[in-house]
């Protein structure tokens, strides 16, 4: 899956650790999702969407 996490994070001037703290996960998790090495579960994808106040489909798309 492709995602816009890095762009969205940059727009808000958040570091990976900032986003990780907001999501309650490790910085490694954010990095793995951002680089496409790991696809998050549905609950985590919803949490990411809530954090950015956007629908899931505007953040993730099929790769």
């Amino acid at each position: 899956m492709k995602n816009r996490l890095k762009v969205l994070r940059a727009e808000r001037d958040w570091s990976q650790q900032d986003l990780a703290d907001r999501l309650g996960v490790s910085r490694q998790s954010v990095n793995a999702i951002e680089t496409g090495k790991y696809d998050p579960s549905l609950p985590l994808a919803f949490t990411i969407a809530e954090t950015f106040a956007m629908p899931i489909e505007e953040i993730f798309e099929r790769g």
């Binding site: 309650g24 996960v25 490790s26 490694q28 998790s29 793995a32 999702i33 790991y38 998050p40 579960s41 985590l44």
Partner: peptide, 8 residues
Amino acid sequence: QTDEFIRM
């Protein structure tokens, strides 16, 4: 473990 990536 609450972090799903680390758990994996």
